[in-house]
Nucleic acid binder design. Structure first.
Length: 257
DNA sequence: ATAGGCCTGGAC
DNA sequence: GTCCAGGCCTAT
């Protein structure tokens, strides 16, 4: 489920599901998660109470009252499934947190690329993230400045979480379409006002999607993503698909230059 | 800056 | 079977 808007809605659901509750047990079912978190560390979570749930970029930080942090990242296909401890586990359950009131939050992830980590109390964790799209510190000037150091195309630059936290492959393409910018233009050749238009487009796209889930119908409303060969919603020119840095980029060859 | 790997399912 | 997938890390 994962770009900033979907992670934000996941975090909101987590807050409702776990704040103030005490952990009865944490289980992991998939070998790749077992390799990450020791049995001992999982056991040590029993009894901890959830104080807060925060989001930074696409990262989810479950803050415990003992100062430790349970850190989740959905990668490609993770999501939370909230249910009761005696319900049948979902098909792709990879981990589960059960609370002392019998409620449960399950990490549901077909591809099992999600990560789960436990950070000790007082640890300063560096997620390597730039400002959130909504941060006031992110301005056309500041973005123009960091992009001036990049010689590569703008679209892969937008996926670099060190520049802006939370943008992913879908919304990067959508924002460039709204700003009428070609995904292949070198980042350092963008004029200040083009960067300004792009930043406004990023904020628009993220704001509009925030709180939504990633569903078939939300995808069908997108301007360019996954619309190869379909008419541009502005000019009817067929949308093109190219590959940049190993990822698909969709854009309108006519109105994005 | 770009392949390859991590994982698995779904579309073709 | 082959290709593709919302992310991100590592090695080249």
């Amino acid at each position: 489920m994962p770009e900033l808007p979907e992670v934000e809605s996941a975090v909101r659901r987590l807050r409702r599901a776990m704040i103030g509750k005490s952990i009865a047990r944490v289980e992991v079912f998939h070998p790749s998660l077992r390799r990450r978190v020791s049995r001992h560390r999982l056991r040590s979570l029993t009894g901890a109470r959830v104080r807060a749930v925060d989001r930074r970029g696409k990262h989810q930080l479950i803050m415990l009252d003992d100062g430790r942090t349970l850190h989740a990242h959905f990668r490609m296909t993770g999501d939370w499934h909230v249910d009761r401890a005696d319900d049948a586990l979902p098909r792709f359950a990879r981990a589960a947190v059960t609370f002392d009131d019998g409620s449960r939050v399950v990490l549901d992830d077909p591809r099992a690329l999600s990560t789960l980590d436990v950070h000790p109390a007082g640890a300063s964790l560096d997620l390597g993230l730039g400002p959130e799209p909504g941060d006031a510190s992110l301005t056309a000037d500041s973005l123009h400045e960091v992009l001036a150091k990049r010689r590569g195309p703008i679209k892969p630059a937008l996926l670099d979480q060190r520049l802006i936290a939370g943008l992913g492959n879908i919304y990067a393409a959508e924002a460039l379409w709204h700003a009428r910018l070609s995904p292949t233009v070198a980042a350092n050749t963008l004029a200040r006002r083009q960067v300004g238009a792009m930043l406004r487009a990023i904020r628009r796209v993220i704001d509009r999607a925030t709180g939504a889930r990633y569903t078939d119908s939300s995808v069908s409303r997108l301007a360019v993503y996954d619309r190869e060969g379909k008419p541009c919603r502005r000019c009817r020119t067929p949308i093109k698909r190219i590959v940049q840095a190993g990822r698909s980029t969709y854009y309108c060859p006519h109105c994005q230059r």
